[in-house]
Design a protein around this nucleic acid. Structure first.
Lengths: 160, 160
DNA sequence: TATTGTTATACTCTATAACTATA
DNA sequence: TATAGTTATAGAGTATAACAATA
């Protein structure tokens, strides 16, 4: 929107800073992906929950919260919202009456498919300057680091 | 802190999700880097400002805000804090009496060097499962995407 | 006593808009 | 009229703690 104000050779040292790059890429991705998840209850978090629910056994809310690295208190709000829009449903766990199983609905799967398609386009916009091979490399490397981080519990408690 | 609760083969679809990976890596990096910037005024943002000031001509606050992708209103608070700790200084721009030039102090350079050293160790912790070559690839690819994003103004207004 | 889910409170952060002083 | 910097206000988002039900 704002026409760039020249900046011919902008950041000398910042350009090689990993934290800087992560921050910028993260922000930029959030930007290009915003439209894709804009009308989804809970936004990006709602998307993460739907993805997590799309495969495997119906988890408890707590297990789900751990899987997507969210606090269990925000999971309550998030699921309330998603359930109100009939994208997920909750039912009591027959084995443990404290817990509730979370399931994705058919409607939820349809919305997920739509959002995924839209997100794929957004990703391509973000990675437009990379070749197909480089984009794949980046995905692979990021995923590996992410899985390490998740496994090591380097940051599962909160988010940014 | 919390002992991982098994999760033998955790996320089927999430593992290949780029947004998920970016989010997790971003959070994990913030986690490992937190200690490094904990005692720095403004935390991670203070660091970014010091890095940006370490090279080149003293910028105006607005130019600095654009460079590190922060709003100019938060730049005021941030610089107040950094100046109170004598890590930066402000002086009037002789060419434009509305503007103020921002300079890093000697003390600021020393702190920056300390933080950088500590951050390098944190980065290594995050990338521990990657080979040296892979880590370099990741840095390079992320930087390229970040520079594209920054240039395209895909997300310069705010942050996460 | 510990755990699952829920709710309420306080706090932090950010966005928005106003204001000044210059240009 | 537009811009650089500052300040104040309101709103969103989060963490913390407390609570009820169950194990």
């Amino acid at each position: 929107m704002t026409p760039p104000k020249t900046d011919p050779a902008p950041d000398g040292a910042l350009a090689t800073d990993l934290g800087w790059a992560i921050r910028l890429v993260s922000t930029a991705f959030a930007g290009v992906a915003a439209d894709s998840v804009a009308d989804l209850p809970g936004g990006a978090r709602g998307y993460l929950v739907l993805v997590a629910l799309a495969t495997g056994e119906p988890p408890s809310q707590l297990a789900l919260a751990r899987q997507v690295s969210l606090d269990r208190t925000v999971m309550t709000y998030l699921l309330d919202d998603l359930e109100a829009h009939e994208l997920i449903s909750r039912r009591p766990d027959p084995r443990d009456r404290r817990a509730r199983q979370v399931l994705i609905t058919e409607s939820g799967r349809e919305r997920l498919a739509q959002v995924r398609k839209s997100l794929a386009a957004a990703e391509n916009r973000l990675l437009v300057d990379l070749s197909a091979g480089e984009a794949d490399q980046l995905r692979t490397l990021l995923s590996r680091v992410a899985q390490t981080a998740h496994r090591e519990s380097l940051g599962p408690t909160e988010d940014c």
